[in-house]
Design a protein around this nucleic acid. Structure first.
Length: 114
RNA sequence: CGGGGAUGGCGGGAAAUCGCGGCGGCCUGCGGGUCGUCGAGGAAAGUCCGCCCUCCACAGGGCGCGGUGCUGGCGAAACGCCAGGCGGGGCAACCCGACGGCACAGUGCCACAGAGAUGAGAAUGCGUUCCUGCGGGAACGUGAGGGUGAAACGGCGGUGUAAGAGACCACCGGUGUACCCGGCGACGGGUGCAGCCAGGCAAACCCCACCGGGAGCAAGGUCAAGCAGGGGUGAAGGGGCGGCCCGCCCCGUAAGUAGCCCCGGGUAGACUGCACGAGGUGCCCGGCAACGGGCAUCCCAGAGAGAUGAUUUCCACUCCGGCGACGGAGGACAGAAGGCGGCUUACAGCCAGCCCCGGACG
RNA sequence: UGGGGGAUAGUUUAAUCGGCAAAACAACAGGUUCUGGCCCUGUCGUUCUUGGUUCGAGUCCAGGUCCCCCAG
């Protein structure tokens, strides 16, 4: 993921978490809020409840890959925070990608391809 | 062939496409693009020891607190490593040990059982004397026998005695000590002497010897918005109430307001510390070894919401099904955050040579 | 990064200086009652785990696991 597409500042995370629209399932939570830039920015949170350092790194990298593949299909100008819940530990990329894309549809930021 | 012991090492390999981080070159419309190169571990882990580094404190000595505890060597140091001694376990190879002091400072504890748990003591027994209703009883001596316990002033034989006892004697065991021999030493072997025998626990208080200042990279350093402060210069104004004017109030009028210029300290923030080191690899030399020395060669992660990911093919390995061709499934423990030396803990599977025991065959 | 504390029956807590692991409630079984409750009796433990010291460890000493708290 390129650096300008990342959400990096603590204040940004706080703003999205508090004011953003939330969608969740058993594996993931996403918060979406309008950003100040013409493109999207993404942030990922993998807390200690997800598992060991190895498990957290694994999930974070899979989420990055899923967001990379999903990025072109999303409406731009949003800040998105993805939070991993304990149940995602050990899941495959394909399964995570499917769940993530469904949550993005619920949040209404997927481009209308029809 | 089967079982066991110790040591060292590996932690799948090759390739393609998409993607990420650092550094360097080139290009740039300063957003980035492109090429090259490097990019997790043996434990990166737990943070249990120690050191480097940084800041603070510091005449010297004592007390206190904490740590270590057989000997020699290695090491920057360590609750570290190597070799050896002693003790314990195992048929053995080997393994394990906080391994100074409880007789030469003192205190404490040792449940239950037992006469007695350290200057403590006799219920039974044995012996002598006395009493007797002949069943036994009392006093004294004794600590050998039996009995208790995890543990009981040593064991066996004799002398001795009323019965006995290290009371005495020889031998053995153990303790201390003097000398001799071997060893740098811990210690081992031998000879003589002593008192005749001294229980265990110091991961009980403690004593002895040695060691230890305190904090930590969020240490510390550099730059530095804003706010507040100081100095210089300096129009006489500046500010509040209010929609605006008037008005009123506050500060100032040279011991000087606004503005402008300068100054040090320093918050947010940025940069640094932060990757050439007790460094890796190969060969040679010294040493039983830990390790040391020499030469050659290499540059090898460095983030800051935090880089190693995804997909596919082939090969190797393990398991399952199958006579087979083949098909299917699987791949441990675990992720750098200043660095280094150790310890400890986790770990699928595999490799190498060595040693011990048992069996079979030649 | 540095420091402190804890883990005992299903739950909440005890256990003196190392000497037979207790109490209450809950659960289960039995008794009492026409039935239920109350009541009575009984049952239920890897003292977090692995080693060590000791004759003997919940207690003392190490290693490990998990949880809580404090400072920056």
């Amino acid at each position: 993921m390129q650096q300008h597409l990342r959400l990096r500042q603590r204040d940004d995370f706080q703003r999205v978490r508090e004011t953003g629209h939330t969608c969740q399932d058993h594996w993931l939570i996403i918060n979406v809020a309008p950003g100040t830039l013409p493109h999207n920015r993404y942030g990922i949170i993998t807390g200690k409840r997800v598992g060991s350092a190895v498990a957290r790194n694994r999930i974070r990298r899979l989420l990055k890959e899923a967001l990379r593949l999903l990025h072109a299909r999303l409406d731009q100008g949003y800040d998105v925070v993805v939070i991993a819940r304990p149940a995602v530990a050990g899941q495959s990329l394909a399964a995570i990608q499917q769940r993530l894309s469904r949550l993005c549809q619920q949040a209404g930021i997927v481009k209308d391809t029809t």
